[in-house]
């Protein structure tokens, strides 16, 4: 079998699987943050900044997958 096909499947799996966990995590985090914002509208600014930082840390995981997908793409001859 053509090795390029394996690279393509690997890239797709890398980005596809790596988005699962961060997707769930970001959903939970933003849900809680929105709940907090709704309860205490006076600290919306602080919550938003902290939420963005948390989301950025979670997003890094998905980005690792994306980077690996790019690397595998680059290997396709």
């Amino acid at each position: 079998m053509d090795v390029n096909g394996f690279y393509a499947i690997g890239a797709a799996l890398a980005i596809g699987l790596s988005t699962l966990g961060p997707g769930i995590g970001q959903g939970l985090a933003s849900a809680k943050a929105l709940e907090g914002m709704a309860r205490q509208p006076e600290i919306i600014g602080d919550l938003r900044t902290n939420m963005l930082i948390c989301l950025a840390f979670m997003e890094a995981l998905a980005i690792y997958g994306l980077v690996f997908a790019f690397m595998l793409f680059g290997k396709i001859a």
Binding site: E59, A60, I63, Y64, L66, V67, F70
Partner: peptide, 13 residues
């Protein structure tokens, strides 16, 4: 490293 990867991955993606 993550700082660089995050920015690159998002924009490049």
């Amino acid at each position: 490293f993550t700082l660089a990867l995050r920015l690159f991955g998002n924009i490049h993606g």
